[in-house]
Design a protein around this nucleic acid. Structure first.
Length: 484
RNA sequence: UCCCCGGUAGCUCAAUCGGCAGAGCGGGUGACUGUUAAUCACUAGGUUCGCGGUUCAAGUCCGUGCCGGGGAGCCA
C-alpha cells in the first residue's frame, strides 16, 4: 500500500528521476490492463479522470478513465477510507489517484473493478463550469473546446486510432522495404503546383508592402513557403535509396471550407524507383488494405464505437475495402460509364473534362460499390511531371476513389525522359530554371519511377466513418480558425 | 470564393398568424439504491449573436455585419 500523504505524488521527492519512475511504475497500472485482468490483484494503483460518479449509501461508484482505452474502470469507494472525505470534489472531469484491490465485480457490466483502499483528489474540476457533461455533445460544440474534447469517448477513440494508424503506415512501408524520408517543411520552390502556399518570412508584414529587391533582406534571401508536397524531394531520394516515403504535415492556403479540407494536414507520399503505374496501384491498394486490417486487429474496441454511433455501415465498408479487389478503370472508360448512366449530373461529362465530385461518388458508391482506381487521365487536366503515355494524349496518373470520402489517394508514374519532361514544362509555361535540380535527375541515371500522396486524415475518415476532417485531426486549421 | 440552412439557458432544441421566453439534459439541494448515460423530488439559471429599421408590440418581419453547419469549386 502506498502512503497517501502530500509527498506521495509530488515530484519534490529527492529520488533521482530514474528511481522515481521505477517506484511509480511498479505500482501503477493502466485502466486498460486493469480491465483485462484475469485474476485479482492485491495491490493496484490507478490514476485518471472521473467520467461519472454514482453515490450509494455508505459508498460511491466512480467511473475512472485514463485514456489507455475506451472503457472506464469502476472504482468502489467506501465512504470510510482515507481520502473519501474529498468525494464531493470528485466530480466529472476531476483528476484522481486511487489505490486498492482489483477484484471480480459482483455487479453487471464489468468483470473487474477496483475496491479502493485510499483515494486522492489530484485536481478538481468545478462542475458548474466544466463544459463536458456525461451525455453526448455535438461535434460542432466540441470543436470549440478542442482542449477538452479528447476526454470524450468519441474523440479519445479517434485519437487512439489516429496514433495506431500512423504506426500501421510506418509498419506497411517498413515491411515493404521503404525508407522513411523527412522531407523539409520549408521550401523555396514556389512551383510545386499543388495549390496556394503559405508564405514564410521574417520581414514584418505590417511594415510592407516591400519592393521585390527586399527579398534579399529576408531570412533565406529569397521567397520561402510552407511545403504543399514532399513529392519532389521524395523523387530525389527514390533515385538513390530506391523506395522511400514521407509522412508529415502539409500546408495549403486554399480558401476552401469543406468537411474534407484543412489548411494543415498530414500526407503520406511514397515514391519508388524502377516502378510503373501498375506497381503504384498495387502499392496504394496494399497500403489501404493493410492499414484497415491493422486497425481492425489493434483498435477493435474503439472502432466498435464508430460502427455503433457514427456510421452503422462502417463494418461493411471496411469489409469491402479489405476483401474486394479495387476496380481499375481507365479514365476513358469512366467517361463512357458516366455518359451511359441513367442519371442527371449537374456537371457535363466528356473526355478532357475533369471528373467532378458527383461523378466520382457515382462510380465508387453506386456503380461499382467498392474502391475504384481511375487512371490514364488526359494530360491537359493533370500536372506536368506525370508520365506521358504512348498515345500522346493521356498521362499515367491515378486517383483512388473510395465511398463517402472520394479521392483518398492521387498519384502517377513520373516522367523520367528528359526531353519529354522539358517539353511538358515549356508547354505549361513553367520556368525551366527553377526545376534545374529536378531535371538533373533525368540527366544522371534516370529511371522509371512512380508514387502517390495519401491524405492521412481522409484515411481516418474512411476508417472511422467520421464525416468531418476537423474531427480526426487534433487541432484543425481551417480558414479563420487558429485557436488552440 | 459562390449557393443553401442556421445562431434562443452550460448543452441539445421548442416557441402557432408578430402578442407574458419553454422543455429535456447538465448544475445545485435533498431522498433512495451494488449502481451502470442510475432513479425520484425540489431548485437556480436568459443581452433570444451584434448594429440599425418597421410596429402599439419583434426571438419571430426588413437591412446589414459577425459566427457556425452543409453543398460546390480547388484538392489529399
Amino acid at each position: 500500500m502506498f502512503p497517501l500523504g502530500a509527498s506521495w505524488s509530488t515530484r519534490q521527492s529527492r529520488l533521482p528521476d530514474i528511481m522515481y519512475m521505477e517506484v511509480r511504475v511498479m505500482k501503477r497500472i493502466a485502466v486498460k490492463d486493469a480491465l483485462q485482468a484475469t485474476s485479482p490483484l492485491a495491490q493496484a494503483e490507478v490514476r485518471g479522470w472521473v467520467r461519472t460518479r454514482r453515490d450509494a449509501k455508505g459508498f460511491s461508484f466512480i467511473e475512472l478513465n485514463d485514456g489507455s482505452c475506451l472503457k472506464n474502470l469502476q472504482v468502489v469507494v467506501d465512504h470510510a477510507i482515507p481520502g473519501a472525505e474529498g468525494l464531493a470534489g470528485m466530480t466529472t472531469g476531476a483528476a484522481l489517484a486511487v489505490s486498492g484491490e482489483l477484484v471480480a465485480s459482483p455487479g453487471k457490466g464489468q468483470s473487474y473493478e477496483l475496491k479502493a483502499a485510499a483515494v486522492r483528489l489530484v485536481g478538481p474540476a468545478d462542475p458548474e463550469t466544466y463544459p463536458l457533461q456525461k451525455k453526448r455533445h455535438s461535434d460542432e460544440f466540441l470543436r470549440t473546446i478542442a482542449h477538452l474534447r479528447p476526454r470524450t469517448n468519441k474523440f479519445g477513440a479517434i485519437f487512439r486510432i489516429r496514433s495506431e494508424a500512423a504506426f500501421a503506415v510506418h509498419n506497411y512501408f517498413r515491411e515493404h522495404g521503404f525508407h522513411l524520408l523527412h522531407a523539409p517543411i520549408l521550401t523555396g520552390s514556389d512551383c510545386e503546383g499543388a495549390g496556394e502556399m503559405f508564405r514564410v518570412t521574417t520581414l514584418d508584414p505590417l511594415k510592407g508592402p516591400y519592393p521585390k529587391e527586399a527579398q534579399a533582406e529576408d531570412f533565406f534571401g529569397r521567397e520561402a513557403y510552407l511545403t504543399v508536397s514532399g513529392q519532389l524531394e521524395a523523387e530525389i531520394f527514390a533515385q538513390s535509396l530506391g523506395k522511400v516515403y514521407t509522412f508529415g504535415p502539409t500546408f495549403r492556403a486554399e480558401n476552401s471550407n469543406t468537411p474534407k479540407h484543412a489548411a494543415e494536414f498530414w500526407m503520406i507520399e511514397p515514391e519508388m524507383a524502377f516502378a510503373d503505374l501498375t506497381d503504384n496501384m498495387a502499392l496504394a491498394e496494399g497500403l489501404l488494405k493493410s492499414c484497415i486490417r491493422h486497425l481492425r486487429e489493434h483498435c477493435a474496441e474503439d472502432l466498435e464505437l464508430f460502427a455503433k454511433w457514427v456510421d452503422p455501415t462502417l463494418a461493411a465498408t471496411l469489409d469491402n475495402i479489405e476483401g474486394e479487389p479495387f476496380v481499375r478503370l481507365p479514365y476513358a472508360e469512366a467517361v463512357d460509364i458516366l455518359k451511359k448512366a441513367k442519371r442527371e449530373f449537374e456537371f457535363p461529362v466528356g473526355f478532357g473534362l475533369d471528373l467532378q465530385t458527383e461523378h466520382e461518388r457515382f462510380l465508387t458508391e453506386e456503380h461499382f460499390r467498392k474502391p475504384v482506381i481511375v487512371y490514364d487521365y488526359p494530360k491537359e487536366i493533370k500536372a506536368f511531371y506525370m508520365r506521358l503515355n504512348d498515345d500522346g494524349k493521356t498521362v499515367a496518373a491515378m486517383d483512388v476513389l473510395v465511398p463517402r470520402v472520394g479521392e483518398i489517394i492521387g498519384g502517377s508514374q513520373r516522367e523520367e525522359r528528359l526531353d519529354v519532361l522539358t517539353r511538358r514544362i515549356e508547354e505549361m509555361h513553367l520556368s525551366l530554371d527553377s526545376y534545374w535540380w529536378y531535371l538533373d535527375l533525368r540527366r544522371f541515371g534516370t529511371a522509371p519511377h512512380a508514387g502517390f500522396g495519401m491524405g492521412f486524415e481522409r484515411f481516418l475518415m474512411l476508417a472511422t466513418g467520421v464525416a468531418n476532417i476537423r474531427d480526426v485531426i487534433p487541432f484543425p486549421r481551417t480558414p479563420k480558425h487558429l485557436e488552440f
